[in-house]
């Protein structure tokens, strides 16, 4: 694989109304990067992902994806050029069936084709419940559906906002296993915001620690995620 930058974030600031959350973040993501972003609640992890997707407008700074400026691009266009984003919550249409959810996600095409087939193979819980209303799925099934929906389109970069929050250990490891298969098949870079570090450690090759809207550590030594004293130095009350 030829290494190249897929995402460049430079001096990014953003926030909500009068509250500045991101304070000049700079970050490069290569196509072989699988990054875990960790930090205490409220440090700006989710806001960073939402700002990249232009769901939260940036105040200053630049974001480019494969050399295209995207900080003012509408969210739907950002998705269409190859950034997938899994929202933390409300990431499926609960009133629609699983099949309808997948149809919407696949860009109004039928659930056929090599990509759709592979994605559904990775999520048997989704494939076996196509007629069920999404609102009736369990938490794990719903997250599987949400991830399958995001990956129905080709992505070069996948942003995941706490994908296993609230899931049982078995549902979480099933989801992570499916994600691993999808990464090997479609080879995309990923950025994952998550608190359950043990679960995601095997999936990542780079670790970023945030505090108060800034990046305070950026390392490829992902084993540090499991080092309680190292984590304790950077922020307190980290659930592992």
């Amino acid at each position: 694989m030829t290494l190249q930058n897929v995402l460049q974030v430079q001096s990014l600031t953003s926030g909500y109304r009068n509250r500045v959350v991101l304070q000049g973040i700079s970050l490069d993501v290569c196509n072989d990067n699988h990054i875990a972003i960790i930090g205490a609640n409220g440090c700006g992890k989710s806001t960073l992902l939402r700002t990249i997707m232009n769901l939260v407008p940036s105040t200053t700074g630049e974001i480019s994806f494969r050399e295209t400026q995207i900080e003012r691009m509408p969210t739907d266009q950002i998705v269409r050029i190859g950034i997938g984003y899994l929202k933390q919550t409300e990431n499926v249409f609960r009133q629609l069936s699983v099949r309808d959810n997948l149809s919407i996600a696949s860009g109004a095409k039928a659930l056929a084709g090599e990509r759709a087939e592979f994605v559904l193979d990775c999520f048997p819980v989704v494939r076996n419940r196509l007629k069920v209303r999404a609102g009736l799925l369990s938490g794990g099934q719903r997250q599987s559906l949400a991830l399958a929906m995001v990956l129905m389109r080709p992505v070069s970069l996948l942003l995941l906002d706490e994908p296993i929050a609230g899931l049982s250990p078995s549902a979480a490891s099933e989801l992570m296993h499916s994600l691993e298969s999808l990464k090997s098949r479609f080879s995309f870079a990923s950025v994952i915001v998550e608190h359950r570090l043990r679960r995601i450690e095997p999936l990542v090759n780079r670790l970023i620690v945030m505090r108060n809207g800034e990046i305070i550590d950026d390392t490829t030594d992902t084993q540090l995620m499991l080092d309680a004293s190292w984590l304790d130095e950077r922020y307190r009350h980290v659930p592992t």
């Binding site: 769901l55 739907d76 998705v79 984003y85 990431n91 629609l96 309808d100 959810n101 919407i104 860009g107």
Partner: peptide, 25 residues
């Protein structure tokens, strides 16, 4: 019943999701 019109039904429930799935709101 067409897949492209399912978006119309999904819109009322979650407009942000429509956008994050690549559809122009």
């Amino acid at each position: 019943r067409l897949p492209s019109f399912k978006i119309v039904l999904g819109m009322g429930e979650n407009t942000e999701l429509v956008q994050t799935l690549g559809h122009s709101l």
